[in-house]
Design a protein around this nucleic acid. Sequence first.
DNA 1: GTCTATATTCTGATAGAC
DNA 2: GTCTATCAGAATATAGAC
Lengths: 172, 172
Amino acid sequence: MSLRDIARKIGMQPPSLYSYFDSKNAIYDAMYVQGCRQFVDGEPWDELTGEPLHDLRRLVEYFVRFCAAHPARYQLLFQRTIPGFEPSPESFAISQASLERVGHQLNRCGITDRRAIDLFSALGTGLADQQISNDPGGDRWIRLIDGAVEMFFDYMTKTTTPETPARGRRRR
Amino acid sequence: MSLRDIARKIGMQPPSLYSYFDSKNAIYDAMYVQGCRQFVDGEPWDELTGEPLHDLRRLVEYFVRFCAAHPARYQLLFQRTIPGFEPSPESFAISQASLERVGHQLNRCGITDRRAIDLFSALGTGLADQQISNDPGGDRWIRLIDGAVEMFFDYMTKTTTPETPARGRRRR
DNA sequence: GTCTATATTCTGATAGAC
DNA sequence: GTCTATCAGAATATAGAC
């Protein structure tokens, strides 16, 4: 989508956009902020129960469904595949804060391994990525979320605190 | 990169490319095939030992390192993010065959769950994706491969064949 | 604030000579 | 097979009138 297309969609002439944005990348940055806000505003924090497996599933499910529902935003926010664009520091800070909240939630679930957040994010991104690339509009990888999170939780609660009694674990 | 850039790089004039390819997408398709071949040719099948955890780690490590070393190919082959392009059926079949070999390898490792290949691919893609997006040139997610594969293997050998005695499992 | 008009550069692609 | 010449259109961006 070009500036022409944007302008036409909102009933403007292309040059008029420059009254609002300095450049095309400035528009991308605004969209980045908007996308972050939209993602953060929908985060299901108030739907968490304190039951680790349930809560982590909710987080991953929210992320994957968001990405699958808005693949262009997924590309803009999480893939960094738009040629000349990278978000401004202020904009990037918003998504950083969101990631940190996920880290804190992992801690609250008894997962303190320092690599946990990286592995967790890789798992979520992988599910979203495959869902978008190989089954757009479907739910083939969305249906794997519960199992994937269980896999992650089992592994993390075993290797980091092997002496801790299993909490809230379920099979299937 | 435009057709002009390609032509200049190989010391040709842009129109001469059309003696070899019908369109820009035809070039993409040839690159897709070339990328598939390159990936397949380097697959470490002859380095597998029969020890499930080792072999699966080798496969994932090869995939992630390939993607991290060739991010443009990663985008072309596995991300499908190039605007007007999708591979021709003949080209796509090559990558399909590669994925099927991974599925057979999972079977050989005693993993027969039908969702295993999807979860495995999501895990590999997620690691590659995060590595490229958030630590290009580094190894932050590459270092997670061993743990991630162990997590996957443990989960798959437990949930699908819970009565099977653990084979080749190691901690850390 | 929004417009018309336009600059400049790049894009993929074609015609036709050699 | 490769070239020169060129097309038709799209891209981002600017100047200046209303």
